[in-house]
């Protein structure tokens, strides 16, 4: 996984609440059992006037050339709600996004972001207007967003921060605790034998 340290990029505003994973990548766009080939289906219901013919809707922000190359998406409350499909994160990442700033995130989506090197920044308040359609710099170690002369700090839990900073694989990290896991399990087998089938 690619580490996330700092990022300077233009932000793309998609200011809506409850952007769900069916909208981020509809099920019909998940055409194979793999994790790739999804960018083209990103936001398909809003991005295309005719999804089958791939006719772009000029009014949708993703089709606005002003924002080409933007790596930061900005949205409203409860971003990524709905289906647990990790394809939503894979599609955003494959398209080129490295960070989503929202007022809040649905929990499964947020975890999926962290597992794939996409930084979820929850602001817990309305996104300031100056952040929208602006070039900003995010520094994860410092937990700061710089825009113009201003500096805004954000919260993120230690675990997510470290994983993103180091680009660590969670499974490798956990397997370092193999002994603790095995000890726990052998105790548990005698306490709750009925759990083990």
């Amino acid at each position: 996984m690619m580490p996330f340290t700092t990022l300077t990029s233009l932000t793309m505003p998609l200011i809506r609440d409850n952007v769900d994973t069916d909208a981020i990548i509809p099920s019909r766009e998940m055409k194979s059992t793999g994790k790739t080939g999804l960018a083209d289906g990103l936001f398909a219901p809003w991005r295309y006037l005719d999804a089958a013919a791939r006719t772009p809707d000029p009014d949708f922000v993703l089709n606005d050339p002003t924002y080409s190359g933007a790596q930061i998406l900005i949205s409203g409350e409860n971003f990524g709600c709905g289906s647990s499909r990790e394809h939503a994160v894979w599609a955003l990442a494959e398209y080129g996004f490295r960070c989503v700033i929202a007022e809040s995130f649905a929990p499964i989506f947020r975890n999926n972001c962290v597992r794939n090197g996409l930084l979820p920044i929850g602001l817990a308040r309305a996104v300031p207007d100056e952040l929208k359609s602006a070039i900003i710099t995010i520094d994860l170690a410092a937990q700061s967003i710089q825009f113009g002369e201003q500096l805004l700090s954000f919260e993120i839990d230690e675990e997510a921060k470290n994983m993103l900073l180091e680009g660590m694989d969670a499974i490798d990290l956990t397997l370092k605790q193999k002994d603790a896991i095995q000890n726990w399990q052998s105790n548990d087998r005698s306490n709750r034998p009925w759990v083990y089938l």
Binding site: I108, N111, N112, R115, I171, T174
Partner: peptide, 22 residues
């Protein structure tokens, strides 16, 4: 609770998950 595919892999490979306490 519901998780994504990466976490499913993690659970299958380790019998555990790293979970932020709700």
């Amino acid at each position: 609770w519901g998780i994504g595919s990466s976490e499913a892999e993690h659970a299958m490979a380790t019998g555990t998950l790293r979970v932020a306490k709700p």
